[in-house]
């Protein structure tokens, strides 16, 4: 059975680890450590998160990248051979958008991966950017950006379905 690979990326606090935990059929391997920098949370991913889904014909491996720039060498390692990329972006943290755009352009220019933007925290914040404004910022058509709740397995599955339909 040939495993397929999906990458979940994004800046710190976007919900990458939560997203993978909500859809993985196996216990998620996480490399979380106590954060040594002031990043707004106590623990952060330092190498990768890993989960998997058995699709019958294939295994789908889901990798989460670290959000901090100092781990950017992992973006290449984890994106190599990936089928698609979901870039999670918290709608109420616009100061993280430039970093998300930098990661996205870096990865999709170097690896042949289809991608979507998953806009998170839309349910928690009445004061976030909306889908059309985020799409304009990333220079993407609106249908390539969708609201995602990483804690909700159905929402995470919808995001993956949306991505796969674009391939």
């Amino acid at each position: 059975m040939t495993p397929l690979k999906l990458v979940v990326s994004g800046p710190v606090g976007a919900g990458k680890t939560t997203f993978i935990r909500s859809i993985s059929q196996t216990e998620v391997v996480s490399t979380e450590e106590v954060s040594s920098e002031e990043i707004g949370k106590t623990h952060t991913t330092v190498a990768l998160d890993f989960g998997q889904i058995d699709l019958g014909e294939h295994l789908l491996h889901i990798f989460g990248t670290p959000g901090q720039t100092r781990f950017d060498y992992m973006w290449d390692i984890l994106s190599e051979g990936a089928l698609g990329l979901i870039m999670l972006v918290p709608c109420d943290a616009p100061d993280e958008f430039p970093q998300a755009r930098r990661i996205l352009e870096y990865v999709v220019s170097r690896h042949p991966v289809e991608f979507i933007i998953g806009l998170t925290r839309t349910d928690l914040s009445a004061n976030g950017w909306d889908v059309s404004d985020v799409a304009a910022y990333f220079g993407l058509p609106e249908h390539q950006v969708l609201a995602v709740d990483p804690q909700d397995a159905a929402s995470a599955r919808r995001a993956i379905h949306h991505l796969l339909q674009r391939i």
Partner: peptide
């Protein structure tokens, strides 16, 4: 992509 999309 189409084949595995149906799973989701």
């Amino acid at each position: 992509g189409q084949r595995i999309a149906s799973f989701f």
